[in-house]
Design a protein around this nucleic acid. Structure first.
Lengths: 289, 289
DNA sequence: ACGTCCGATACCGCCCGGGTATCGTGCTTG
DNA sequence: CAAGCACGATACCCGGGCGGTATCGGACGT
């Protein structure tokens, strides 16, 4: 049984229109050799020569012309089928949770990629405070979350997007401000920002200097921006991923005795919705610079 | 861009008809897990649940029903395109050469597989004598050859189907008949079958005990059957692959100091015809027991 | 004659799509 | 009710396919 896949047909159409494999490869965002190979494989599959190769490009053979004329309709029909199937499934909504402002850029990128791929899906974004590292997943408020480790992950599956070391955010007039790194013992006696009560214990312990501080007096932080402002104004300290963009007057010094924190996409382990898995696929396949 | 391939759609159709992944896997000559995975991936691709999973099988969701109804037409159109393209290319003939009766079984299998895959192609088979190891390739009589090494392969590409040690064919009353193997020195003074004059030197040297014999008296052998008869009747000896089927009264004793001979499919290095490449593909993918 | 511009080839690394073994679960059955 | 069974799901392995880079060969056009 012959099994052409639609991708190679799109390749063929592009080459036929450009009359030039190199230019077609450009349009397809790939390089020339794999495209040459794909065309040759399509020819082998059909047992027919589709292009004449000339020194200045390629031209369609009669068989290639027939394939070109017929293929457009086939691809069009395939797209129509996709739309009809999506319509028949109804407009299933997808709720995405994000951890406060911790994952803004990557979250925006992922969501826009997801929207491009599943145009018929209604996406809602729920930004949660720093008190809930599951960003609403635990509470069932969202279907999938973009957040950070560590937290209690029983019943939750995760895919790591990026693993980032963590550091101490301090004012640039801090005695440690110039250091290449610090360790926990250097930080004894500091006042730390306070997370909301009831937060996941592993999470709270990780982000607040092991919690051995008198932080009853600090106000509760709900976003990273609030944390940074507290550091600037109150002389408290906070932990943050070292790639956190900082306002002027603040620096982050790597903390060398704490494991990195992972930027992850997380979802309930028992999920069956294809949309959630599709979101995870998008996250897996795109580059996280 | 979404890229469903037609294979996964055929999988889907089969599962939808069987209402049972295991049975569908059987019909598709594959096992259940990869089929489950393929269905799930199709669902992810479309962002839609296609089947309800139940303890006794699967049932189509509304979206799945729509896909089922639409997909048949798509696959039918794909098949029609294949036929039209093949027709537009005209009925390109393919000439296949085989080395005498040396490759009968495998040749028959390959040719029938090729015919099944390219039904529109007219295939002709040219059986050559033992004097031409290229089976007509060198002379331009055929497009592709099923033959044996060794021969001068300049300008010729090959794909090895099977590598078989070579042995001496002798009568079962020969002094060496019971031996597990023999070496060239054991065979001094024997009379050997004679190949046609002008055969490829490497080829002739390989198959006739290094050619240091008085074989002016032996008749020229044109097929393996003739060789075997000569051994039976004239007391000459011959070399043959050790898997050569033998008539009663003959045995083959492995020759332990000669490299094996490869059963190969060969074609001109400068080939551009998709049919030749298709034939090679068929040869590569089928099992050669 | 040589540079340039094609497509073709060679080779590499990763991912995908096959496989086997095993699990979880809901239904059946003694 | 416990045990078996039947089904799909999961985990893991392995080979092939499809991306990539580097390079070749050949046909023009100065």
């Amino acid at each position: 049984m012959l099994e052409v896949d639609l991708r190679s047909l799109r390749y063929f159409i592009t080459v036929a229109e450009e009359r030039h494999i190199g230019r077609a490869a450009n349009r397809l965002h790939m390089t020339q050799p794999p495209l040459s190979r794909a065309i040759r494989q399509l020819e082998d599959e059909l047992g027919v020569l589709l292009f004449e190769r000339t020194p200045k490009g390629v031209t369609l053979t009669p068989a290639g012309k027939v394939l070109y004329d017929e293929t457009g309709a086939l691809l069009g029909r395939a797209d129509r089928i996709r739309r009809r199937v999506a319509a028949a499934a109804g407009t299933a909504p997808l709720a995405i949770g994000t951890l406060a402002d911790a994952a803004e850029q990557v979250g925006d990128r992922l969501v826009s990629l997801f929207r491009a791929r599943y145009p018929h899906v209604h996406v809602s974004i729920h930004e949660s405070g720093l008190g809930d590292p599951t960003a609403g997943l635990r509470a069932g408020l969202v279907d999938v979350a973009i957040t950070r480790t560590p937290f209690d992950d029983t019943g939750i599956s995760m895919h790591v997007l990026r693993s980032v070391p963590v550091g101490v955010v301090m004012r640039d007039d801090d005695p440690f401000a110039g250091h290449a790194s610090v360790s926990s013992t250097d930080l004894a006696g500091r006042r730390w920002v306070r997370l909301p009560e009831g937060a996941d214990p592993a999470w709270a312990a990780y982000w607040t200097g092991s919690g051995d501080n008198d932080n009853g007096a600090s106000p509760v932080m709900r976003t990273i921006q609030e944390c940074l402002q507290a550091v600037l104004w109150n002389g408290t300290s906070a932990l943050a991923p070292i790639d956190q963009p900082l306002p002027a007057g603040l620096v982050v010094v790597p903390l060398d005795d704490r494991p990195p924190s992972d930027l992850v996409v997380a979802w309930p382990r028992t999920v069956c919705s294809p949309l959630v898995r599709g979101f995870v696929q998008v996250a897996k396949h795109c580059r996280h610079t």
